[in-house]
Design a binder for these strands. Structure first.
Lengths: 316, 316
DNA sequence: TTCCATTATGCTCAGGATAAGTATAACCTC
DNA sequence: GAGGTTATACTTATCCTGAGCATAATGGAA
């Protein structure tokens, strides 16, 4: 390949780009994602001439398909779905994915949009009530089988080590951020429908709703990013109503992280960081002692140098 | 906009995609980036039909243009350079950027590639010898002027607050990760050449070499990502030779972070994390007491659950 | 009314991690 | 052997974190 010009003059290598949205909300302690096509796809559409930017294109598609306006948005990842779709000779099509955070509001009637619980797609990711039974009962045995099916013993060991690390087996700690790694592992082990869609062999056995194309993979990317981000950026508040109790805030964090946190320590961290302020009002219609209502201090983000939200999600 | 089909059948919205590489090396305590076109551009080229994936396309371009093979690679960001280039009606062109880490080796003779120190492009980012004089002498006054030029006093205050936070003015702490925010701020304030390239007004005054198109912005993104990542992932070792002393390792980290770290604490952290092991040999040809040579323990990455590298870069 | 379940909130305490400094060792050049 | 330079071992004070105890409000059941 000779020294090529830095920019192709008028590129003959035209491709198509899709914009895909992982739109997240948390309602009553359950994380939801916006889906279309009977909960089998994420909102998405091609990047078109008319779009002034990638984000405006994305917003247009999401609003058209779901009737839901897009609030906070950040880019996730760009990939050419290729080996995945199989047709190696087809013109290139790349997907540019985004993570969006909102509140679950009224979805326009008659629209295709639908909020789905994200743990329907990843039942092994919810550890709020301890490790889900299906990990020990289904996932681990299947991964053990996959490891054993390798030729050499060194590959067998490497496979099982990888499985144990990502799924917290053999007394290893569960790491809630490895969402994508776990999905990729299940894909490679051919124990989810997406993996056997192309290759005819194998049988999908691990429970969990799948999606078209790469969408469940994109969703895994979004969840992983969000679980990592809530630990050092105050993004949870994008998912909260204007006023909330500290327990509601905690439940939202736990819903996203898929694990429980120590209540008193959680409150201490939130309060000492001055991320919230009391509204003066109290929560109504609750069981137990009424809680103070808080609101997010938007000012703090500007005041501090990119305020870090610490959450007690490090160890344990 | 009616409910559109989820995937355009055969998209008429063809676009072109460029692959851009921020290829980093550290030599003798100085961070370098691979450049072409007389150090005014990053290696890049269009994503073509022949490329099997985005990464293979990138590797092909970098090797063709610089003769340097690509090692560790991770995706940075995808954007449509648009408002930036001005031609709002031109067909869409998106850039997909990557961060690559290697060692500075022999660049093939006659190739266009050249290693440039990255602080030539961002002289305000090197705080290893304290805050650079040009911040107080040039950057701060210019940003003050930009803030004052706003209409309302509230905007004036907001502008100056932003400047103070990103550049650590008014006794605020310097945050080395805000590389992109600082660049964006200088761009908005029209005090760098890129900003006045389109708009004829203004005069570029802040020192620092600029690049074609969005390339300096992409470089800022890469530096920011790397500065963030060395704190929690063992990526520094991608930049080190097979054997190194702890001081060399420290100097590399400091070069990337643009700030000094406490020597004894640095060693303690590195050693207690078992990221390195002694080779048994000692460093030759040095001043002072000879240091032990270490090598990176590749095994540790697999052993631990995505081993976190802690570095003493948090406070201070 | 009392007791209990439930949630809110204040406080303590031990262990670990971190920043920063002191002290000593090993090598070189002059 | 004095002085510069780097390596390496300890010490200390502080802060952070995880974990638990205790008490305060509230509503409903006994």
């Amino acid at each position: 390949m000779a020294n090529a010009p830095r920019k192709a003059e008028t590129s003959i290598d035209a491709i198509a780009a899709d914009l895909v949205a992982v739109l997240v909300a948390v309602t009553e302690g359950e994380p939801k994602i916006m889906t279309i096509a009977n909960a089998a796809a994420l909102p998405s559409g091609p990047f078109q001439f008319g779009h002034r930017s990638l984000q405006t294109g994305l917003r247009a598609w999401v609003e058209a398909q779901t009737g839901h306006p897009l609030g906070y948005v950040e880019q996730l990842y760009t990939f050419a779905d290729h080996g995945r779709t199989g047709d190696a000779r087809a013109p290139h099509r790349i997907s540019i994915s985004y993570l969006g955070l909102t509140r679950e509001d009224q979805v326009r009637e008659g629209s295709e949009g639908h909020w789905s619980g994200w743990y329907e797609y990843f039942p092994w990711e919810d550890h709020r009530a301890g490790p889900p039974a299906l990990i020990a009962k289904i996932v681990a045995p299947k991964l053990r089988g996959w490891a054993k099916s390798a030729e050499s013993t060194s590959v067998q060991r490497a496979r099982w080590q990888r499985a144990a690390i990502t799924f917290g087996l053999d007394d290893r700690a569960w790491n809630e951020e490895l969402v994508l790694q776990r999905y990729e592992l299940l894909y490679e082990a051919s124990v989810i429908p997406e993996a056997v869609r192309d290759k005819p062999a194998g049988e999908a056995v691990v429970p969990g709703r799948s999606m078209i194309s790469d969408h469940r993979r994109i969703l895994a990317t979004g969840i992983a990013r969000l679980r990592a981000k809530i630990k050092y950026r105050p993004v949870v508040f994008e998912l909260m109503p204007a006023e909330f109790t500290l327990l509601q805030l905690q439940r939202s964090v736990e819903a996203l992280a898929g694990r429980l946190v120590h209540k008193q320590n959680f409150r201490r961290l939130i309060e000492q960081q001055e991320l919230v302020e009391e509204t003066g009002a109290m929560a109504a219609e609750t069981v137990g002692r009424p809680a103070k209502l808080f609101r997010f201090r938007h000012g703090i983000v500007a005041e501090r140098a990119v305020a870090g939200t610490k959450l007690p999600l490090s160890r344990s």
